[in-house]
Simulated assay, not measured.
Amino acid sequence: MNSEVIKYVAGGGKTTYSRGLLKDNSRGLYLTYNNSVKDELLCEGYLAMTLDSFLTGFIIPKAIPKIPLIPDGVNIKLNEVAGYGSGSRNISINHDGTLHNQSLRIDNVSLYTQYNTFSSMPNFTNKQFLEIMFQKDTLNLSHEQRDGLANFIIANHKDYVVDIIRRRFAYIIIDEAQDIKTPKEPLVEMLRSSNIPTIILGDENQNINGGSEWFSGLQATKSETLSYRCGDGLCGWIRGNLKVDITGSDRESSYNKIKYTQVLDFDDGNRFLLYKSANGQKIKGILSTWNGPKSTIQGAKGSTIEEDVIIIGDSMSRRFLYTAATRTRKSVYSTITRIND
């Protein structure tokens, strides 16, 4: 195993650390869930992709010659559920190459069936759905089907996949690893157990995008509890109320409770408003009249905010509140009255 697991607090320097590695060796690949950080690194001339685009744009196209049902040279098209062919979205791809419609196995065809054999078969139940997915020139997949196909490739052609990755990239950086969902775990485990140098970075306390607990179970080879972004006044409140081991810089900062009726008094056009969702009349009213910058907490994740942050809502989970509060270099003003686990 040729991997490192590095756990940093918010503002602990994960992106700076990644930039340093990429600068030293330009053949490294940076993988993340965060499009804004990925785009930023691309603009700086580094190789960067999301985990989704790595599967769709690199691993699956390279492995298509190993899959008889998919013709060489097809274009891969990802379809959102709402616009996908009726019935086709119910087809699942399993790691053993079998295909199912919901819980029922499709016996007539699998990923091991030659495409020409499949296309010449007389009509059978589910064939019309499969014909939408597996076309001569286009492979139409939902995100779930894409993950299923990728996991089939990893389960059955691991050495081949590792070899093509190693030939192209000197090492892999996986950032925001706490966001990795169960369907992506086989990819990361394959990299982690291979001879490809792999650096896995994350902060389990920022797991707000439905990630599994996979990253939490990894033993860190290196950790950082100092946040270069946040002041220790704010970090002291986080330590005491959110139970996160984080220390801040000596810049002035604090966490302050305010009422909904006070929120607009803090709108000077510069302070940043953060919220989990736009549900509820109070939040909708504030959002409609707020003049300064604003974002959902998920949308602001991975960013650094140079102004005070205003967090609105009645209750919020510990991880969401931690993620929101640690965006700023300054102070936090919050209407949150109840913190949930």
Rank of each mutant, 00 (worst) to 15 (best):
A325I: 09
S26W: 04
A155L: 09
A82E: 10
R239N: 02
D159T: 08
R167P: 02
T323G: 06
T289E: 15
I286P: 03
G13W: 09
A220Q: 08
N94W: 12
G299R: 09
G73T: 11
G248K: 03
S92W: 01
N270F: 12
V74M: 09
R229I: 11
T98K: 11
T221S: 15
T225I: 13
E144T: 15
L47N: 14
G231Q: 05
A325Y: 03
D245A: 11
L191Q: 06
P71M: 09
M1H: 14
S216I: 00
N2T: 10
Y160K: 02
N79F: 15
S194A: 06
S119W: 10
A300L: 05
I67T: 01
L242P: 10
S120R: 11
T225S: 14
T225W: 07
N209V: 13
S288D: 14
F215D: 05
D314C: 10
P197S: 06
T328V: 04
S277I: 14
K23T: 13
A63H: 02
T326I: 04
S331H: 13
T261K: 12
D39N: 15
L201F: 14
A325H: 00
N195W: 05
G20A: 10
Q281V: 13
W237P: 01
F272L: 01
P68H: 03
G269C: 02
V332A: 13
V74I: 07
L321V: 12
I283Q: 00
K184M: 15
Y46C: 08
V5M: 03
F118S: 07
E185V: 15
N25Q: 14
I164Y: 01
D39R: 12
Y46N: 07
P68S: 06
I67Q: 05
I246S: 06
L234A: 07
S315I: 00
L99D: 00
I283T: 13
A82L: 13
D268N: 14
R192V: 00
I238P: 01
Y33K: 01
D245Q: 07
S303P: 03
I246A: 09
L22H: 11
I6L: 10
G236F: 03
I312L: 06
K294D: 01
A48M: 10
I336D: 08
G248D: 00
S120Q: 09
S53C: 08
R105W: 02
Q114R: 14
K257F: 11
I297Y: 03
S53V: 04
N241I: 08
L264T: 15
I70E: 09
L29N: 05
L201M: 09
D159K: 00
N126A: 08
D159S: 07
N207H: 00
K257T: 03
S193G: 00
Y333A: 03
L111H: 11
N116F: 03
L201P: 12
S334R: 01
K301Q: 13
V74Y: 01
N108Q: 15
I174E: 15
I153K: 02
S288M: 12
N140R: 04
R167H: 05
R338N: 10
R338L: 08
I196E: 09
F118C: 10
S88K: 04
L187F: 01
T56P: 00
G217T: 07
F320I: 12
I70P: 12
N207A: 12
K184D: 15
